[in-house]
Design a protein around this nucleic acid. Structure first.
Length: 820
DNA sequence: CCGATT
DNA sequence: AACGGCTAATCGG
């Protein structure tokens, strides 16, 4: 079909193991599906050599005879490359090969050549190497030149054999076709067993109007979206059919890596079906990834939103659990179909009729919610994908550490920095064994205070890294006699180069400046503007990477791990916060509390104006990138201990940190009582009301009037049940449930209740399902003495009311509090 | 009651 | 498989 030039949006990429070439999958603006084959890319790695041995090493490499299969494998190119390894000058040879399968046979023989000290970048997967080198970003417009040929894949418009493939601009694909998928399974004993229990239905929801539930059981007056086929096998075949005909550009699920797709695969195996979902007609592949699995469909990015939310969004969410219902409620204000619990699935399926209709509705809604979540999160996933520079499939599954690492890897060569190897074995354990001092936390004045001003350092750690040029490449440089110096850390000062910028501070400075520019633009846009949404997501993605940089430097499995850097950052953080504390005190403010980058002062006889003058003075003395911000003014606050306090602003809005209220391992009844007490004291200024509320709760608990969901406690299993040394209540509840056939995985949230009976607290702990089944009653004594009272006791003490007084055991005159 | 575990 | 600091409950000797 001849030479052609076109622009397209790449969605996925693979290194073809058999044909040994890079294949990029994408779409033109008109939605035509294209495959771009890049024959020009060849894998390579670096050998670090002593410069004086250069000729002999090159000769030895040329003389190597490596046989792969029947044929001799050849080195394609040898080039000298003067570069840096973590700031140190190194001479390397860049060795390029025709294919990866040939290249890997050269690792060992080249390592053994005298004059070669180490091999670098042998542990970069080829498709990632390709994206690092080519610079273009997934989901954005890319220019390709090459020969247009008929596609070998049946459901693709054409293939291009590329000569050139390059970035044009970073314009994002508009409105990709997204398909959300959810399955329901037969589950007579709780968790479904893929070897026995069939898939009942597969639900599909798209952002372009195709919505269906495919099932194999009929009932009267079925909803329009239900399509009934003959059998479970036909459900699977119809699913394959839909993927092929509908051509979704992105497939999304919720926990689909570890549930939906592995289950679909297991059931397909049973019928000896090969579900060819990939654009290249390849099978749905379930791979192992860390402790879990990942479901890969070649050519169509499959995003498991549960994984992305858990890894990246989780810490910013309020929700206690990452189940679909709670997450969707918080992010998009939607809930699942009510009056239905998944444990009833098989019973309702067997009943048929209206019950079956209800399952159809429930399943459809789940797929719809998943789709809406993706529509909400697409911009963020796309921006993370762009900034990290890898595929959406990979990036959506990365943790913070991996996002930072691949971001650095992408940019390292601009600074001629080679990518250090992943640390293994004792390198990791040695690093883990060597800890360093963290942030400073000021012991609070326990009690109730009024007129509180809060300051915080804007992006404290990133601004320190940039100001002090903290980088593994600048530590104790050769050029500066005295560089940027840290305070003493265990009696030693650390120095960072003043002459040349380190690559991490340089990249970080670019990120910070980029974010400032974006925020300037956002300010002028209306909130519902499409650009506003994209730029907000970009700003959030940049912030995520910038804030994770410090943690990455102290992370034992980092390629650019640097103990001295991490320890210097926290030491400087401690230096600046303590400096502000002492200056505030010397100016006559009373410092109530401080933690890491924030400072709480009481105005006392000073004015708000005085506090603003103070902040100006501080800022004029700080390095340019560092800034102390005015965070807010609060009319009242109660401080209980380090990391435990509550504030109320002038409008009565509460800020609560560290208290039981924000913790999931406390019952709702304890948390609700606690917040009601805080509100009474901080907002209403009435300790009588607080006492009344507490006593009333205790009475209701005694009378057994509190519903079960308010006495349920959530605790995560962090390991396998048998690995626990100490059996806490949640573990004990799980052990008892396990004997009855329930299964538990590490990471699972255990919902348990302490019931009436004898023995230790653990003896009396049972999981929610057990309690409901056996109609057990909660233990009022436990919830009064171990939940409600401890949650409010410290607060009452801080305002001068003892426990006895609270419970009415001692008659004391109340009063003298906020004028009453 | 107290250190260890969570 | 991002850091350390910190509080508090409960176990288990």
């Amino acid at each position: 079909m001849g030479k052609t030039l076109l622009e397209f949006y790449p969605f996925d990429i693979k290194y073809d193991d058999n044909e040994e070439k890079i294949v990029v999958y994408g779409y033109t603006k008109e939605g035509e599906k294209v495959i771009v084959v890049d024959n020009s890319f060849h894998p390579y790695f670096y050998a670090v050599i002593s410069p004086e041995d250069k000729e002999s090493v090159i000769n030895s490499i040329k003389n190597l005879k490596v046989i792969v299969g029947e044929k001799e494998a050849l080195i394609k190119k040898i080039e000298e490359y003067q570069s840096h390894l973590v700031g140190r000058d190194v001479t390397t040879l860049k060795l390029t090969f025709n294919t990866y399968s040939e290249m890997k046979h050269f690792f060992e023989p080249i390592k053994r050549i005298s004059g070669v000290s180490e091999l670098l970048e042998t542990d970069i997967p080829i498709h990632r190497r390709y994206l690092i080198d080519k610079r273009f970003k997934m989901f954005t417009r890319v220019r390709v030149e090459g020969e247009k040929v008929k596609s070998t894949s049946p459901n693709t418009n054409f293939t291009i054999l590329a000569d050139v493939i390059e970035e044009t601009n970073s314009e994002l694909i508009e409105n990709p076709k997204i398909m959300a998928v959810d399955i329901e399974t037969y589950n007579p004993i709780g968790n479904p067993r893929p070897e026995k229990d069939p898939i009942l239905m597969i639900s599909i929801s798209t952002n372009y109007g195709f919505n269906k539930v495919i099932s194999w059981k009929k009932c009267d007056e079925m909803q329009d979206f239900v399509e009934v086929v003959e059998s479970e096998m036909d459900v699977l075949l119809r699913f394959e059919d839909i993927i092929k005909n509908e051509n979704p550009q992105i497939i999304v699920g919720y926990n689909s890596d570890n549930f939906d797709f592995p289950y679909i695969n297991e059931r397909a195996k049973k019928y000896k079906l090969n579900l060819k979902l990939g654009v290249d007609n390849s099978k749905l592949k379930i791979t192992k990834r860390g402790i879990g699995k990942a479901a890969k469909i070649i050519g169509i990015p499959h995003i498991d939103l549960f994984i992305f939310i858990r890894n990246i969004l989780g810490p910013t969410l309020k929700t206690e659990t990452y189940n679909l219902n709670a997450v969707a409620d918080e992010l998009i204000g939607e809930k699942k179909v009510e009056g239905f619990h998944w444990t009833e699935m098989s019973k309702m399926w067997d009943n048929g009729g209206d019950d079956l209709k209800k399952i159809f509705e429930y399943s459809m809604k789940d797929a719809e919610i998943t789709l809406k979540l993706m529509e909400k999160l697409f911009n963020l996933i796309a921006e993370m994908t762009k900034i990290v520079g890898q595929t959406p499939f990979d990036v959506s599954r990365m943790t913070y550490g991996q996002c930072v690492e691949w971001f650095l890897a992408k940019n390292a060569h601009d600074f001629k920095e080679l990518i250090p190897p992943k640390p293994l074995g004792h390198f990791v354990s040695d690093r883990q064994a060597k800890s360093y001092e963290g942030a400073y936390v000021h012991k609070p004045e326990v009690g109730l205070f009024e007129n509180i001003v809060v300051y915080d350092f804007r992006s404290l750690y990133p601004s320190i890294i940039v100001s002090y040029n903290i980088c593994p490449t600048t530590l104790f440089c050769d050029c500066c006699k005295v560089g940027f110096e840290t305070p003493e850390i265990n009696g030693k000062k650390y120095s960072f180069c003043k002459e040349k910028k380190g690559f991490i501070p340089q990249l970080l400075e670019n990120l910070i400046n980029r974010r400032i520019r974006i925020k300037e633009i956002i300010k002028k846009l209306p909130k519902n503007d499409e650009d506003y949404k994209i730029l907000s997501a970009r700003s959030y993605a940049i912030k995520t990477i910038a804030n994770a940089m410090y943690g990455y430097l102290g992370f034992a499995r980092s390629r650019w791990y640097c103990w001295e850097c991490a320890a210097s950052i926290t030491a400087l953080g401690r230096h600046y916060i303590t400096k502000v504390i002492s200056e505030a005190e010397s100016k006559g403010f009373s410092v109530l509390y401080a933690d890491t980058d924030s400072l709480f002062i009481s105005l006392k006889n000073k004015s708000l104006e005085d506090s603003k003058k103070f902040i100006k003075e501080i800022n004029s003395s700080l390095p340019e990138m560092m800034e102390l911000d005015f965070q807010g003014f609060y009319s009242r606050g109660v401080f209980l201990a380090k990391k435990r306090y509550a504030l109320s602003d002038t409008l009565g809005n509460l800020t609560i940190k560290g208290l039981e209220w924000v913790r999931r391992d406390w019952s709702k009844i304890a948390k609700e009582t606690q917040i009601a007490v805080i509100k009474s004291i901080l907002v209403d200024g009435s300790k009588e009301k607080a006492i009344r509320i507490t006593r009333d709760t205790i009475k209701k608990l005694k009378e057994g009037k509190i519903p079960i969901d308010k006495v349920t406690i959530y605790t995560q299993l962090t390991r396998k049940i048998e690995d626990y040394e100490s059996i806490g209540p949640h573990v004990s509840a799980a052990i008892k449930a396990k004997e009855k056939g329930y299964t538990f995985e590490p990471g699972q949230i255990i919902k348990y209740i302490i019931v009436k009976g004898s023995g230790s607290i653990s003896d009396k702990a049972f999981i929610l399902e057990d309690v409901l089944d056996r109609k057990l009653e909660y233990d009022p004594e436990y919830y009064i003495n171990n939940q409600v009272i401890p949650a409010v006791e410290k607060i009452f003490e801080a305002v001068g009311i003892s426990k006895d007084e609270l419970l009415g055991k001692v008659q004391t005159k109340l009063g003298g509090f906020f004028g009453d």
